[in-house]
């Protein structure tokens, strides 16, 4: 077993990792996946799916009960010290010093990694220019989006090979979210492997590959397009004036496979292709008014819902 020193092609390797909290809470069960070098990998799943647990194990903050995990070829349990100096980690909760200024935070994290802001400035330059006007401001007084940018700068200041981001866009406004993802794309071009978790399905399409995770199990790993194309059922978007009753009624419809709220519409997946008129007639029979039915393009959310119901 001398493979830890050998350069592996994968940036992150996870093999049947399990973690249990207490007696009944199985946070992760037999999770396995790999992330290639320079890949932007998304962990998509609802709250409590096990995303944070997985990232904390990779960040060497938590010990797994079973299984193995390697970051950049280093085993998380044995080589945690090497991992700590070569990864950038952004916890889900803002974890910088709120009473220190933007500049002081960055300076502090640079120094404890034994580097300087100057040395790796080109890496954070794009992000830091946006923070520059506020560099004397205390971190606690920044807006949500700015806090995320600062946290990303601090996670990048020592030029990590792997970046672990735990729900970086939760609680951030849509514009800042978009900016944040653009930053991640630029970092990817600089050969940094990024593992990012998010509860937002729409962000999945921005990743190279995603793993759908639920209740500690990985449901599917694929490119976003692949996950969507795996969804092979006919899909319709339906709306009426009584949305709540609509979902109940559609679920009882004999040809219905599943029905989930999706924005203003209910996405209805069908067992077999039938005429929309049949559905219209069914709903009219249930005394629905303002019925609107149109074909819909499957999204990753539909695919995820589908995978969830299969469980």
């Amino acid at each position: 077993m001398n493979d830890t020193t050998m350069p592996t092609t994968q940036a992150i390797q996870v093999e049947s990792l399990s973690k249990r909290y207490g007696k009944n809470a199985q946070a992760l069960s037999q999770v396995s996946f790999e992330v290639g070098r320079g890949e932007l990998f998304g962990l998509i799943g609802p709250d409590g799916a096990g995303k944070t647990t997985l990232i904390r194990i990779l960040a060497t903050l938590l010990l797994a009960d079973e299984g193995q995990a390697r970051v950049n070829g280093w085993e998380v349990r044995r080589d945690y010290r090497k991992i700590r100096s070569h990864i950038g980690y952004m916890p889900g909760r803002f974890s910088l010093y709120q009473d220190l200024s933007v500049e002081e935070n960055l300076h502090f994290f640079a120094t404890i990694f034994g580097t300087t802001i100057k040395e790796n400035y080109e890496l954070i330059h794009d992000i830091y220019v946006q923070l520059e006007p506020f560099r004397k401001r205390k971190a606690g007084k920044l807006s949500g989006g700015m806090k995320q940018k600062l946290a990303l700068c601090c996670a990048l200041i020592h030029k990590p090979v792997v970046l672990l981001l735990d729900e970086p866009t939760t609680g951030v406004d849509p514009v800042s979210r978009q900016e944040f993802w653009e930053m991640l794309k630029r970092l990817k071009e600089k050969d940094i492997t990024i593992l990012v978790s998010t509860p937002y399905m729409d962000e999945a399409s921005l990743c190279d590959r995603v793993a759908l995770i639920q209740k500690g199990n990985i449901l599917s790993i694929d490119e976003p397009g692949g996950i969507v194309s795996a969804f092979d059922k006919p899909l319709l978007a339906v709306r009426t004036n009584d949305m709540y009753r609509l979902i109940q009624d559609l679920r009882e419809f004999e040809s219905a496979h599943s029905a989930f709220p999706f924005g203003e519409y209910v996405h209805l997946a069908l067992r077999n292709s039938i005429w929309p008129e049949a559905i219209h007639a069914y709903l009219a029979g249930k005394e629905h008014t303002g019925i609107e039915i149109k074909p819909a393009q499957a999204t990753i959310e539909d695919a995820f819902m589908e995978l969830m119901t299969q469980e």
């Binding site: 903050l61 010290r81 990864i87 980690y89 909760r93 709120q98 404890i112």
Partner: peptide
Amino acid sequence: EIGTIEQINVTPI
């Protein structure tokens, strides 16, 4: 309490 220890713990300190 504030969570900053989480960030400190992943550093080589």
